[in-house]
């Protein structure tokens, strides 16, 4: 799980162009939206694409996104449970 969390941090920094940010700057338990990383709605779409492209996971119900993308930790848990 720790390895996956670190990988996700790197992928998110790259995919969302979070320049000047290092993986160690991100707290895996911190909220991704609003406070914390302060991501926006376009970033949410980018995360959905990342899940499909990198992990083959399609998020069918957009409402699930709120739980899945709460933090990097919740993303990692969801990937572990759903990756084929």
């Amino acid at each position: 799980m720790d390895e996956l969390i670190e990988k996700l941090k790197i992928q998110i920094i790259e995919q969302l162009n979070l320049e000047d940010m290092e993986p160690e700057d991100i707290n895996a338990k911190e909220p991704l939206f609003g406070e914390g990383l302060g991501l926006d709605s376009i970033d949410a779409l980018e995360l959905i694409v990342l899940m499909e492209k990198e992990y083959g996971i399609k998020i069918q119900n957009p409402k699930d996104g709120q739980k899945i993308f709460r933090s990097i930790e919740t993303m990692a848990s969801y990937i572990q449970m759903n990756q084929k």
Binding site: L16, N17, I42, D43, L45, E46, V49, E52, K53
Partner: peptide, 11 residues
Amino acid sequence: GGFFPSPSIFV
């Protein structure tokens, strides 16, 4: 290897 348009580019 797949059709993955990037929302952050498209916007």
